[in-house]
Write a protein that binds this DNA or RNA. Structure first.
Lengths: 249, 249
DNA sequence: GCAGCAGTTTGATCCTGATCAAGGAAGGCC
DNA sequence: GGCCTTCCTTGATCAGGATCAAACTGCTGC
């Protein structure tokens, strides 16, 4: 394991945990935060590792602290569609259900901050604010899923790639608390295969479209980072995105 | 207005309201139910009518009592994707947001049971059970959206049609409290255009695929009802559905 | 150094679903 | 009845993305 990353993972402090300051508990009282503290634990997965299979019993819920996890559905014949892309602070799991309905895999090295589901359920039953926060987060996920449906059903391959880049740029800048509209440099954390599964395309089409956009000078790639987008507004346009580009997700 | 339907709409009783016995308040105490009673009102829309535009301020939330409503997203150039199909008991609106992010239209004559959003928010703030119920419903919607993403991204036109029919059969049988696995007869409440928007296809492809499945003897159409599916299991298979067919949605 | 491998790119060809176009069916209205 | 309009079906052709195939890149291990 590489030296620089290991300590950061094992030393993750409560103050680094997105559960505390970004996700579930953004407006909690100190007492409620302590309740959360007591029942949490961390777990790290390696890139490519399966975190859970669809249909599996899952007695944990939690959220991503660091890294990227993927949610996907698979047809009996193996065709696969990604249905969720979990960045730090995103929540995984369903209070009130004992099985998970999608495959969960680690795209990068990923660390979760997890709670025993029964304990978490007890907690939200007596802490409406946490439940409320969870409802807000689920609404956000539903909105994202619906935008994603528009992408899958109606956008061309070229537009899909542009949209993916815009999404990645925004999520990355949210992660680093930078404004998104410059979009000068952000990493493509995921493989071509994951992009294809995200976009409902084949890896060949993903590769070809990225090459085409590069040829047209929209950006360069440097060690899997998208660099120097000449005209971020034009990429937004290609993505068919009519929201104003400055707003973070 | 046709005689048989008008009285049923205007006379909708609390006991007929899905908010009460199916949706938001499935496990509420009588006192909580009375709180809901006091702040609700009904509104009916005609087929094709726009209920709300994307981006509009919306001070109401509510759920469908009767009929079907459609949620859809539109690209700047007019390409449209349906992102939600609201049957009776389905909830519309977001406590905590003042704008709606999708177009809402009436597919059939549709009646909503609505609450002033501010009042509903006050109610859920002091009634965690209702909030909990809303969270469960939102989880269900998110699951449905993710299955839908698999359909849009990875299924063929033929499989899309089969999936649509399976979904319609299940939702219709849930509506009428019948087991879904026979699927002998159910209406296609929506037009070919709505089907195309649901499935990410054109109306021509929808029409052709339905004709092809008919030719193969999977079903007949009688006044826009799907009749006598020879082998519901085969349709499930075409839909790539590996859940057991007897379970209602 | 080089073999082996996973991930990626590029090329050639095919096929599914889109597009363009024309007709048919059913209902409403005069 | 006849003429709209709306919705649906069918046909001919096209094109975007899938498929099949091969080569390239960067890494790891020896």
């Amino acid at each position: 394991m590489a030296m620089p990353s290991a300590p950061r993972l094992t030393q993750t402090k409560c103050s680094d945990c997105p559960i505390r300051h970004r996700a579930v508990c953004a407006q909690c009282e100190p007492a409620e935060l302590e309740d959360l503290e007591r029942i949490k634990s961390y777990r790290t997965y390696t890139p490519g590792e399966t975190i859970a299979w669809a249909g599996e019993r899952l007695s944990l819920v939690g959220s991503v602290v660091q890294g990227i996890a993927l949610l996907s559905s698979t047809l009996p014949d193996g065709r696969r569609q990604m249905v969720g892309l979990l960045f730090p602070s995103d929540f995984l799991g369903r209070p009130g259900r004992d099985t998970i309905s999608h495959d969960v895999t680690a795209a990068t090295q990923v660390t979760f901050c997890m709670f025993q589901k029964v304990e978490f359920e007890r907690l939200i039953a007596r802490t409406p604010k946490i439940q409320r926060r969870l409802l807000e987060m689920t609404f956000d996920e539903l909105d994202a899923a619906r935008d994603w449906m528009l992408l899958l059903g109606r956008k061309t391959a070229r537009e899909k790639i542009a949209s993916l880049f815009v999404i990645m740029a925004r999520r990355d800048s949210a992660l680093n608390s930078r404004p998104a509209d410059q979009g000068l440099r952000f990493p493509l954390y995921i493989t071509r295969e994951a992009m294809a599964d995200y976009l409902g395309l084949t890896i060949e089409t993903v590769s070809r479209q990225i090459s085409a956009l590069k040829r047209e000078g929209l950006f360069r790639l440097e060690e899997n980072r998208v660099v120097h987008i000449a005209d971020f507004a034009r990429l937004l346009e290609e993505a068919g995105d009519d929201s104003d580009g400055g707003v973070l997700i």
